[in-house]
């Protein structure tokens, strides 16, 4: 898969879960917690599920805990994709 980046995550967030009033997704959101950006546990599950579909990867249940922020999510997804390629 092509490298997953923050912009792609922003797009998925906007499309699958909408944007709270007062949140600027285009801004510097990488290290903010999903909760603070208005994305609850369901929204994060939906993001993960969209990424799995579009990139054909399988993200384990526990992984959600390892992606508290958009940057950490991007990192995790890329690491997973690399491991997938390596194996």
């Amino acid at each position: 898969m092509s490298r997953f980046d923050l912009d792609e995550l922003r797009q998925i967030m906007r499309a699958s879960a909408g944007v709270d009033e007062g949140v600027d997704l285009a801004g510097d959101i990488g290290d903010l917690e999903f909760g603070d950006l208005g994305y609850d546990s369901l929204a994060v599950l939906e993001l993960v599920s969209q990424v799995q579909r579009t990139h054909g990867i399988v993200i384990p249940d526990e992984a959600v805990e390892e992606m508290p922020t958009p940057n950490r999510a991007v990192e995790y997804i890329n690491r997973l994709a690399m491991e997938g390629k390596a194996s």
Binding site: S16, G18, D20
Partner: peptide, 8 residues
């Protein structure tokens, strides 16, 4: 409808 609720 609030933006976050539309897709939900």
């Amino acid at each position: 409808v609030p933006d976050r609720l539309v897709p939900q």
